[in-house]
Amino acid sequence: MDDHAWGAVLSDNTSPTVSVVIAALNEARNIPHVLGKLGPEVTQVVLVDGGSTDRTIEVTLEHRPDATVIRQTRTGKGNALVCGFEACTGDVIAMIDADGSADPGEIPDFVAALTAGADYAKGTRFALGGHSTDITHLRNLGNKGLTGLVNVLYGTRYTDLCHGYNVFWRRIVPLMELPDPSLPRPADGSKIWGDGFEVETLINVRLAAAGARVSEVKNVEYPRLHGESNLNTFRDGARVLRTIAIEYLRHRRQRAGRTARPALVDQAAER
């Protein structure tokens, strides 16, 4: 078996179980739509609440009484996702935004990419058949530039770096090296690296650096259903650029300081 196939298919050829992680903050009006689009392949819903002051938790449990509801330990989307990953029990983890912009009905397409041999199925709005009805022209240009930079630095062929719809084998979470959710928030109120919106870029470049097998899956992005987005084109674009630079330097230092890939649990043997 390819030693890079850390998320290789289940040995008994059964369908993988799927946990969906939804990070939410005051999304009570959007959650019913998201939960209503989940298919039978989803065996666990993990809602990570960021301190909602509306009825996000109550509405989630009304529509999905079996949902696992947890509160994130610090602040930021990255911390919320890691808290969610730790609570997952499925073979596969799907990251879904709570605002209704992603179609959970596309999850089977991502799972098919995993069972075909990928470790990580990365959503893309820009592959043939993909589309976004929400992205602005300026954000589109910025995304293309940042995606091109990562492709040059890491030898990847990504078409959509800044997108949060991703599905992967739970066993590859250690490769992401995300911050421990049990760590306390810094006394000065700052975020731990990886706790913020940079998390999606971190995951994409760290998996590329680790040699994970990534397969892009086309999908359609829709406008947020209710409420306003926290995205800021220039601020978030600068954050992504900083993330790429820091992570590339980190990757080069790691390569210089080792002669072989770090030993990992033999996940394929455990299947």
Rank of each mutant, 00 (worst) to 15 (best):
M1H: 09
W6H: 08
G7C: 14
N13R: 15
S15P: 14
P16H: 12
P16W: 12
S19T: 02
R29W: 05
I31K: 00
E41H: 07
V48N: 02
G51V: 04
G51D: 06
R55S: 06
V59L: 03
L61R: 02
T68M: 00
V69C: 00
T73A: 04
R74I: 03
L81H: 00
V92G: 05
I96N: 03
D97K: 05
P104T: 06
V111E: 10
A113V: 10
L114N: 10
G117E: 03
Y120P: 04
K122C: 06
K122G: 05
G123Q: 06
G123Y: 04
R125W: 15
F126K: 09
A127M: 15
T133G: 12
T133C: 12
R139K: 14
G142L: 15
G145H: 13
G148H: 11
L149N: 05
V152L: 11
T156N: 14
Y158Q: 06
L161I: 13
R170I: 07
I172K: 03
L178K: 00
P179R: 02
P179L: 04
S182Y: 10
S182L: 13
R185K: 13
R185E: 08
I203T: 06
N204Q: 08
L207R: 07
G211E: 12
E216C: 13
K218C: 12
V220R: 13
G227R: 04
R235D: 15
L241A: 01
I246R: 14
R255T: 12
